[in-house]
Simulated scan of single mutants.
Amino acid sequence: MSEVKIQLSIQEMVKDFEELNRYDERLGVLFDLQKATDKQISDFYHYMYFLIKKYIPTFEKHVSDEFYSDSSTEYDRALILYQMLYENFKEIFYNLV
């Protein structure tokens, strides 16, 4: 079993964490108003997927079955990834202190 080593600067992690939260805030407002477009939802999912591959490259082993469910929407999958990323960032920042 090979170990995956990820090397990122603190500045890059903070930037990614801020962007993660901005995405969530923007879409939270849009979804409360039910105004999010399919493209915005797709962009959210693809950005979460990009970040999860960057920070948790083996996420497929850890993601819930709901992620793979046919009844899950792209938004549902993005939220699952978002939640994993958020918890991962909390752990990273906790370990830095």
Rank of each mutant, 00 (worst) to 15 (best):
Y94Q: 14
L8S: 10
S42P: 00
L33Y: 13
K61L: 05
L79D: 04
M48E: 01
H46G: 03
A78C: 12
G28Y: 07
D16K: 03
D65F: 00
M1S: 15
F17M: 12
S42E: 15
M13I: 09
L96G: 09
F17K: 13
F31Y: 09
E3L: 10
L33K: 13
N21W: 08
I41M: 15
S42T: 08
I92N: 06
D65Q: 12
Y45P: 03
E87Q: 13
F93R: 13
L96C: 09
V4G: 02
S2M: 14
S72A: 13
N88K: 15
L96Q: 12
F89P: 05
V97K: 15
F67S: 04
D76Y: 02
Y55G: 01
E12I: 15
N88D: 08
S71W: 12
F50A: 13
Y45A: 12
G28W: 06
S2V: 14
S71L: 07
L79Q: 07
L27A: 02
T73E: 08
L20G: 03
L79T: 02
Y45R: 06
Y45V: 04
Y23C: 01
N95M: 08
D76L: 01
S69D: 11
L8P: 00
I80G: 10
L51M: 13
E91W: 03
L96K: 14
S71V: 08
V29D: 10
K53N: 15
E60L: 03
Q11K: 14
V97Y: 14
M48W: 02
L85N: 02
L8Y: 11
Y49F: 10
D76W: 00
F17S: 11
K35D: 06
E74S: 05
Y47R: 14
F31G: 00
M1W: 11
S72V: 08
Y55S: 04
E74R: 06
L27G: 01
L27V: 03
F59N: 00
S9W: 06
E12Y: 00
L81A: 01
P57I: 01
E66V: 09
K35Y: 05
D38C: 07
E66S: 11
H46C: 07
A36M: 06
Q34G: 09
Y55N: 10
K54E: 02
L85Q: 01
V14A: 00
I10D: 10
I56Q: 02
K15I: 13
D16F: 05
Q40L: 09
Y23Q: 09
L8E: 12
K53Y: 07
Y94P: 00
D32V: 02
V29N: 08
I10C: 05
F31I: 01
T73W: 07
T37N: 11
F44G: 02
S9Y: 08
S42I: 01
S72P: 15
F89G: 06
D24Y: 15
S2T: 15
E25A: 05
M1H: 13
V63K: 00
N95V: 00
Y86V: 01
Y94I: 10
S72G: 13
L81M: 12
S2K: 14
T73I: 14
L8W: 07
V29M: 07
F17Y: 15
A78H: 00
V63S: 03
